[in-house]
């Protein structure tokens, strides 16, 4: 109850922090998408590159977030961006790469060979085949990767409050330093709630962007 009181009494600040959180996660996701999806497609065409790219993304994923912020601090500090939103966004972009690249890569490779073979045999060039067939068929799986990345990043962004990125993590970090229980719980609950809502919304989006022909196919198989 007291947590709810805290939230309602500090409504304006809570809303601002929530917005900030969404902004950090959202902008990093967009950037990650712009890098990750083309990269995922690219490595389906260059198999020897694929293992290296995926390994790199895997390694990035294993670095604890606090450690990554620590590593970036001196590097970005040279340019005057050691603290704040920029390092947070960069870290989130890096973390998102694995689910996005891996899902894109797998999704494109999972397009039935007969389908791509027929397309090539009929005289579709690579780009056309990609745009008209492979990407539409891969979209549901690519989106699932984005969904994983988004949910994960909502959690990691909470930690970014420690490097001054703002967001709902601020409630947790300040709550801890002030031993203000309601504030900690409010932050934790709101971050979790945000993650659940985004997860649900992305699931809906996934269904919405799945080509109708594929939906029919799934119904038939299910």
């Amino acid at each position: 109850m007291s947590t709810l009181c805290f939230i309602s009494e500090n409504m304006e600040r809570v809303l601002y922090l929530t917005w900030e959180h969404i902004w950090i996660v959202g902008s990093s996701l967009v950037i990650a998408m712009i890098i990750g999806i083309p990269l995922g497609v690219l490595i389906t065409r260059h198999k020897n590159l694929a293992q290296r790219v995926l390994n790199t993304a895997n390694v990035l994923m294993t670095i604890p977030s606090i450690a990554l912020f620590g590593i970036m601090l001196p590097i970005l500090a040279v340019m005057g961006f050691g603290l704040g939103k920029l390092p947070a966004v960069i870290a989130l972009v890096l973390y998102s790469q694995l689910p996005i690249i891996r899902n894109t890569y797998t999704a494109i490779l999972n397009v039935p060979p007969a389908v791509t073979d027929a397309g090539r045999g009929m005289g579709m060039n690579r780009w056309r085949l990609l745009r008209e067939v492979e990407i539409p068929l891969a979209v549901p799986v690519i989106l699932a990767g984005l969904r994983t990345a988004a949910v994960m990043n909502i959690g990691i962004a909470a930690i970014a409050a420690y490097i001054g990125a703002g967001g709902l993590g601020v409630l947790i970090s300040q709550g801890i330093s002030r031993t203000y229980e309601e504030m900690i719980i409010a932050g934790a609950v709101l971050v979790s709630l945000l993650a659940i809502i985004v997860d649900g919304a992305m699931a809906l989006l996934e269904r919405w962007v799945t080509p109708r022909g594929l939906q029919v196919q799934r119904r038939q198989n299910g």
């Binding site: 007969a114 073979d117 027929a118 045999g121 009929m122 005289g123 068929l137 022909g213």
Partner: peptide, 20 residues
Amino acid sequence: VKLRQKIGYVIQEIGLFPNK
């Protein structure tokens, strides 16, 4: 690519585009 456009191609697994 031009060559293939002028030659009809039909395969065993059919290879219809499921999204079309």
